[in-house]
Nucleic acid binder design. Structure first.
Lengths: 111, 111
DNA sequence: TCCATATTTCTATTATCATGGAAATGAATA
DNA sequence: TATTCATTTCCATGATAATAGAAATATGGA
């Protein structure tokens, strides 16, 4: 990951509505949730939700999947893992300090 | 960690200068770096650096230590670890998905 | 105390982001 | 093809953040 992608991801998450959306999607996992259901559950106007989903998508933090008339949004674990790796990169000059990397889906998991 | 602390931390990191500062401090580890040296190395005015360090401090992402006339800044690994834990909390509804937590200092490390 | 140096606060200017109603787009069904 | 419903784009308004020069503050040595 390079710095501009990291900044985009961090900025996307640094907002109450978007962070809430993202955490819901992290907890839901692969299946995802349609946009309208998110708007209803979070009690925000469609236009506002759409704006925030676009921000998250632009940061590659969410993945979309169309199914009939619904667009399902789900968390992009690859980006989240890359972001965490970026933040902890070369921690303590490589000295042993207990760091382990984070992986949140089975495909990229090492542990 | 609660959502407002997470937002503060994410917003603090979502900026090129601050992210660069933070990553330098992560890599340096416990000893830290004095403010002036950071300003010189990153080629930014003292006032600008001070502004950004304050933002990071406000988000509890850095710790300060005074030594003679110098103020040493170092990364606050506890906050970073809490933030990563917050982002991955209840990942995939608790189903096994390879997630492990991140710890970046010896005191809080489990591994 | 007086000076040199390290760092922070003050300040104004400029730029970027968030909100939500209304209109537009896109997809499935009759 | 008309209709319905899900979602997105448009737009104007209001709010917040970034920058860096200059002045202020704080620390230790002469």
């Amino acid at each position: 990951m390079e710095i501009n992608a990291a900044i985009k991801a961090l900025a996307a998450l640094a907002h109450e509505t978007r962070l809430t959306i993202f955490r819901v999607l992290v907890q839901v996992g692969e299946s995802g949730v349609p946009a309208g259901q998110l708007a209803k559950e979070l009690g925000i106007p469609n236009a506002t939700l759409s704006f925030h989903l676009k921000e998250l998508a632009h940061a590659e933090l969410v993945i979309t999947r169309q199914e009939s008339r619904f667009i399902y949004y789900s968390a992009n674990f690859a980006t989240m893992n890359a972001l965490m790796g970026y933040l902890t990169e070369n921690c303590c000059s490589g000295m042993p300090c207990g760091i382990v990397e984070v992986y949140c889906d089975e495909k990229t998991a090492k542990y």
